[in-house]
Structures are given as structure tokens and as C-alpha cells.
Nucleic acid binder design. Structure first.
Length: 245
DNA sequence: TGGAATGTTGGAAC
DNA sequence: CGTTCCAACATTCC
């Protein structure tokens, strides 16, 4: 469940806990002192990219789901939770197979909200500036850079590059200004499309490139390889997606 | 059924 | 000291 839009769904599903007091906190995370959460009210539940932030007066806990993490709201899985929070109204929030970490309480100082593609504070001009500052970066790596596009994951990467018809091995410095602008714009636009499709349980059927064998536009086979510094799977069409170097 | 995958971190190696 | 590479983590699906 790891890309940014999925975290936004989690935030929406847990909004009812904001303002509530944690009456029980446990789990097999060795990383935080769960006892310190008991008695704490939830000040805010926020997301930054793929981070889920649980803010209380005493501490801020960061959940990262990595590749396999899951959660349940008012339900339990048949597995030990990494972190389980119980609330006064009987509700509970359970996290599994994720990274749990206490972070600095001053989250506004440590997080650049303008870099989060799902945030109201998202700043496309700032993202373009960061891209121009690293012209040698491959397009496939740039989209996965959480300092530029927090929340973008491998699915979004592949879909954005297909939408804007840019080859994953293009360098961002070689992109014409309109393409650079499109890359930044679609990183956010596709993320919001992802959000709506995920909510409707129709995400996979909307994939045009990710995990696909054939180009839906020109009907030749996609290329598939692990590319870039990030070495993640890329799916692309040699005919439709232009290589800029 | 083994291998790969919506991801990141920390430490070794150079 | 900076950069790069790789193992580790852990679950689900094909």
C-alpha cells in the first residue's frame, strides 16, 4: 500500500481519531517506548509522501509501510501488530510489518511540505527548480526522489513517463521546458487520479504502462528493465516515449 | 513454488 | 570523507 495517495486514504480513514485519547499502546516494535503514548491525545494525523505521522503532545511517531506494510482500522489481522493503538471509544488502529520511529516533534521544521505531491502546499515551481539543479539525473530516478516528489512510487513513475511520452533514461537537463513542466504537473495529476481509482478499487485496470506487456497506444511490446541509480522496474515504449539526452 | 515486488536504511566497500 | 553497492527487512501474488 505504499505510494502517497494510499497514505491519504489512511489519513481519511483515521480522521475520527484526531482529538481522541490513546488508552492503550503496544505492539512488537522495539523502536519506540509505546508506554509514553498512553494517555496522550492525538493532536494531528498527517502525511508527508509515504510517511504517516501520528502527532501527540509527548511525541511524534512516524509510520513507514515500506513494501509490505499494512494497517487495519477497528479490525485486527491474524498477525502480531508492530504498533496497536486503542482509543477511549473502543476504536483501534493497527499497523503491521512497517517501520515505526519516533521523530523530532517539530515536524514543520523537518518536513518540506512543498515537496509532497499530495499536499495543498505542493509547489511545482520549486520541484522544477530542484530538477534544473540536477540536470544529469535520469527521469526515472528523478520521479522517485522523495526530496522532489515525496509520495511518488514506482507505479506512478512508470505511468507519468508514459503519459508525457518521455523515455525513462532521459536526463532531466535535456528535457525541453514544456516536458519538464509536464513531468512535474503529471507527477501530481497522476497521483490524484491514483487516489480516486484506488478509492474505487479500479487502480490496476487503469494502468497503461506499469506491469503491462504491450503499448496501448501503438501496440508494440513494452520494454522492461531495472533502470537508473534506483534500479527499479521500468516499463516503456520505444516508439512512443522519446529519449532526451 | 520460487521469485519478484507499490521501499528504505544502514553499513561495508572503495 | 563522499559515493556506491548490497543485504536486510517482511508479505503477497503469480
Amino acid at each position: 500500500m505504499p505510494e502517497g495517495p494510499s497514505l491519504v486514504i489512511l489519513k481519511e480513514q483515521t480522521a475520527r481519531f484526531v482529538g481522541q485519547e490513546i488508552v492503550r499502546a503496544d505492539g512488537n516494535t522495539g523502536a519506540i517506548d509505546t508506554a509514553r503514548l498512553v494517555g496522550q491525545p492525538i493532536v494531528a494525523l498527517r502525511t508527508w509522501g509515504k510517511h504517516f505521522l501520528i502527532q501527540t503532545p509527548a511525541m511524534v511517531v512516524r509510520i513507514h509501510f515500506l513494501l509490505f506494510g499494512t494497517y487495519r482500522v477497528n479490525e485486527r489481522r491474524d498477525k502480531p501488530p508492530r504498533l496497536s493503538l486503542g482509543f477511549a471509544d473502543g476504536g483501534e488502529l493497527n499497523f503491521y510489518a512497517c517501520s515505526v520511529k519516533e521523530i523530532d516533534s517539530d515536524i514543520d521544521a523537518s518536513y518540506d511540505w512543498a515537496a509532497d505531491v499530495m499536499s495543498d502546499a505542493w509547489d511545482p515551481a520549486k520541484a522544477r527548480k530542484k530538477l534544473r539543479a540536477a540536470p544529469g539525473t535520469l527521469a526515472c530516478d528523478a520521479l522517485l526522489d522523495q526530496d522532489i516528489f515525496a509520495g511518488v512510487g514506482n507505479i506512478i513513475k512508470n505511468e507519468v513517463l508514459f503519459r508525457i511520452r518521455v523515455h525513462p533514461l532521459s536526463t532531466v537537463g535535456a528535457l525541453p521546458p514544456a516536458k519538464l513542466r509536464a513531468l512535474v504537473q503529471e507527477a501530481r495529476q497522476y497521483s490524484f487520479d491514483f487516489l480516486e481509482w484506488k478509492k474505487a478499487f479500479t487502480l490496476k485496470q487503469h494502468w497503461l504502462a506499469h506491469n503491462k506487456k504491450m503499448c496501448p497506444r501503438c501496440h508494440i511490446p513494452f520494454h522492461k528493465a531495472h533502470l537508473g541509480r534506483t534500479n527499479r522496474r521500468s516499463f516503456w515504449c520505444e516508439r512512443c516515449q522519446k529519449l532526451y539526452t
